[in-house]
Design a binder for these strands. Sequence first.
DNA 1: TTGTATGCGTTATCAA
DNA 2: TTGATAACGCATACAA
Lengths: 348, 348
Amino acid sequence: MAGGKKNYQNTILDIAEALKLSPATISRALNNHPYVKEQTRTDVMEMATKLGYRRNHMASGLRSNKTRTIGLIIPRVSMFFHAEVITTIQNDLHKHGYNLIICQSNDSVNMEQELTETLYASRVDALIAACTLQTVDFSHFDKFVDHGTPVIFYDRVPVGDYKATFIKGSDFQGAYLATNHLIAAGCKRIAHVSGPLTSNLYQDRAAGFLKAMEEHHLSVNPEWVFHQELTHENARIAMQEMFEKDIVPDGIFADNDTTAIAAIEFAKEKGIGVPDALKITGYSNDPRTAIITPSITSIEQFPNLVGTRIVEVLMELLTEEAEGPVYKTEPVIIPVELISRMSTGVNK
Amino acid sequence: MAGGKKNYQNTILDIAEALKLSPATISRALNNHPYVKEQTRTDVMEMATKLGYRRNHMASGLRSNKTRTIGLIIPRVSMFFHAEVITTIQNDLHKHGYNLIICQSNDSVNMEQELTETLYASRVDALIAACTLQTVDFSHFDKFVDHGTPVIFYDRVPVGDYKATFIKGSDFQGAYLATNHLIAAGCKRIAHVSGPLTSNLYQDRAAGFLKAMEEHHLSVNPEWVFHQELTHENARIAMQEMFEKDIVPDGIFADNDTTAIAAIEFAKEKGIGVPDALKITGYSNDPRTAIITPSITSIEQFPNLVGTRIVEVLMELLTEEAEGPVYKTEPVIIPVELISRMSTGVNK
DNA sequence: TTGTATGCGTTATCAA
DNA sequence: TTGATAACGCATACAA
């Protein structure tokens, strides 16, 4: 428990004085510099512990121009996919001796901009970002790029050219799989409840959906295609619009699991049998999809793999550092997999 | 998009030179110091923008001994309750001009210790922590306390005396409410599937459970009381043990929602009717409890309120600063509320 | 209202 | 292998 004088912090000068060594030697010992006598190093370590010395990151960062800290910006930590990704990133970075500053943009472009300022002010060694769905202008990331600080985008990445590294799931493939799965299960009239086309995610998924439909010569009813924020409420409205007409869908490809859940709930209320009269697929394989009745077929995005790859690529970029380009020119694509459940009647 | 020379960063000296002013004036202008001519301030701001100046947090923090950064340690961001709390904390801190560094302990005491070192090295202005369930020794927080840095514990807090501020839900009350609810619904043989007694959470809830049972002269079967990590697997094992006997419970007070969900699933598999033959309550009001069939009665902990109060208290501690004690002697208690659902048959 | 001078704690450069 | 010294970028006490 507490005790002792307040506010004074021991520094390397205190260690130096106690050991009759120079501060430079203390610094070297503490940083595993090769040119330090083993005995000296041991002495320093002991005295550091004894005095309760703790490095001041600000001082060392200021001098060395390295912080061993990585910044992360995500829309929300509460989304299952993102929560898993950041857990992996933090654990993997920790193994490499790096720290992580996690920041939430709350899906606000303004907040995202402010956070880039904050993280730049902290002079993070690299930045990892999953952008807002509304982020179409990425110029607030320029300061990092211009300064030679690696930037890695994942999940929601800039559309078009940008001097950063991209790591993303195969959204085209995921949509293609989901749509084909519905078709194979017998669906002929398939709706696509998707997110805003400002995001690469939904552009790619729309393409995957269309490809599968075309290949099976199924027509796409424009009244059954939605591009809007993927909230529970929006999903309900979409369902209502579709099911108050004479001709209704027999399959719904929902672009996130919240939407799929809303669809299931709507069907239950209206007495529409799932999967008999209506088949539904979600996206992301959120744990809720396995719990609800009927359970929901969804697309697994392997968040842990995404996190691992991000750190792998980051470490490469951070060690290369040989003034080469601080980004990968080719995007890293993470595979996806369809998890079949009750809502499409194909599996238990 | 990118462009321009790499690695050079404009400093206040560059602004000073461009404006033929002294660095001190620039610093004052940038920090809203009162003694700066309005025109000068405007000029400085303009030039700062023009030169793409961005403050170096490390330099200013080193000099001023303030970082305007708060550290946060939690077991996992993926738990619904914690995700909500940190979102609120970050948003509220942002309004006060503070930044938040979020760190996960992964429920590992070792990691928690390391994270305190990291955050101390970053010289955060205050620390917020929800401890591991296994944290019984809190001495790794001493360095903050000794240094006069405010520490706020929430949710999982030290048992006993410690020179820090405590903010917690009323766990006794929550357990008391849940148990009484089961009793009012007609349960006579109630099981308590709870977490490790090393944590204040489960100590308090055990007491609330016992109080309610006693008041209604119901006996507690020790074979139906579990204190173990609250995982899905452990919950299944507990259910199996209880339901392979001749006499089985007719009510289960589960101390988290994952456990309640596992109980529901077990009951479904075994053909035990919920809520007719068995009534179940969870804890935390995780969104999953509303989605599963039957929906699960649970205890709402008002995470947003917890987050708001944390920041309120923190701001008080940070502004007092008048060398008074940097903690509240009385714990702040956040109320709880029972949300009645299908699993206890009392509400829809 | 502004300028001068100094130091925060550490690491890098150079010399020994 | 170690030491002396400067410098990182900024904020502040004091002087003007």
